[in-house]
Computed example of a mutant assay.
Amino acid sequence: MSFPRSLDGTMAEAAEKMRTMMKELSDKDIRDEVTRREIFEAARKVCKGMTPGLMTSPRYEFIERLLLCGNMNAKKAAIDELAMICDHEMGESCSVRRWMKTRNLLPVLLSDHLDHPEYVGKIGPIVRKLAPVLSEREFRAVWCLQKGRCGISHEMFVLLLANLASGFQEDQIIMLFRYFKKQLKLLATCQLQQTAFLRMTDVVLIALTRQCRPPIPLKDK
């Protein structure tokens, strides 16, 4: 479906007005649930009238602000909205992935709350959407989440890794097995840890077989 230029122009004006209004909101304002809900409702209407794929969406901008504002409830609201885009709005599929990659949102999502199953479950659709464009450097940062005294629990790491694996492309799957092989060698002397690791690989292997993997355009990587 193509959108007439006049409509795009009108919606662009509406989007700009929304941005101006959002800039006037304080961090205290956006901590209010009703305010957040009203802004998202308005942003969805504006974005619905814009050409799909435009990355200048005020909806995206408000999501990012909520993610970075330091309030847990605001961050949850942003994650719910972003997960809804990733899971259900196919017209935004490439755009939202490119935007998340450009804005480097993965470290923001993985910066805290990874000990909460509900939180890790909520970010699942977002992680799956980002997975195909994850670089090895970014994956290494995820892999290291299991290490050290501050590492996340084994169960949460398995869930996170399974979500990534379900969206991986062929070259990333090869990379993943390279990491598996290295880890297995390190655990060769500890039967208990080795058993836990093998269970993790089983979960990830199931995730790898769940869905087809359409190629990702080079411009999105």
Rank of each mutant, 00 (worst) to 15 (best):
I30Y: 00
R44L: 11
L198P: 08
E33G: 12
K129F: 05
V142D: 07
D171E: 12
A196Q: 08
L184I: 15
R37W: 15
L110H: 00
L82Q: 02
Q194Y: 10
C47M: 09
K28R: 07
G53V: 07
D171L: 03
S153I: 10
L67V: 09
G70P: 02
L192P: 13
G9E: 15
L68I: 13
R31C: 13
K76M: 13
C150F: 12
K147D: 14
A15W: 08
D220N: 01
D8P: 14
I30K: 01
M22T: 13
V127W: 00
Y179E: 08
M22R: 07
L198Q: 13
P107F: 08
Y60R: 00
V120E: 01
A141F: 14
A14G: 05
V133K: 00
K122M: 11
I85Y: 00
A196C: 05
T189D: 12
H154W: 11
A78Y: 02
E81G: 09
D80C: 04
G9K: 15
D171C: 01
K147H: 11
Y179C: 10
S95E: 06
L109C: 06
E61A: 14
C94Q: 12
V34G: 05
V127N: 00
F168V: 03
E138T: 05
K219T: 14
T56N: 11
C212K: 08
A131T: 00
F3P: 13
S95N: 09
C144W: 15
R65H: 10
T35R: 05
L106W: 06
D87V: 04
K75S: 08
A131M: 02
A188P: 15
A162P: 09
N163Q: 11
A83M: 10
K182C: 11
R98F: 06
S26K: 02
K48S: 14
V127C: 06
A78M: 08
M55P: 10
K23M: 12
T35M: 03
D32S: 08
A42I: 05
M200Q: 07
R140S: 12
E89W: 09
R128L: 07
S26A: 05
L106Y: 00
A165Y: 03
Q194I: 10
K17G: 14
C144Y: 14
I152F: 04
P132G: 02
G53H: 04
T195M: 13
T195C: 13
R59L: 11
T201V: 15
Q172R: 02
D27I: 14
T195R: 13
D27W: 09
R199A: 07
G91Y: 01
E33D: 15
L68Y: 10
E155V: 15
E155M: 15
E92L: 12
Q172N: 04
G151N: 02
A78H: 04
M84H: 08
F180E: 06
G49V: 14
T10P: 11
A12L: 05
L130F: 02
S135N: 04
F139D: 05
N163R: 10
T51P: 07
I173L: 11
L130G: 00
K23R: 11
D115N: 12
K75T: 08
I173D: 04
E138I: 00
A207W: 02
A131E: 01
P107H: 06
M175R: 00
M84S: 12
L68N: 07
E33R: 15
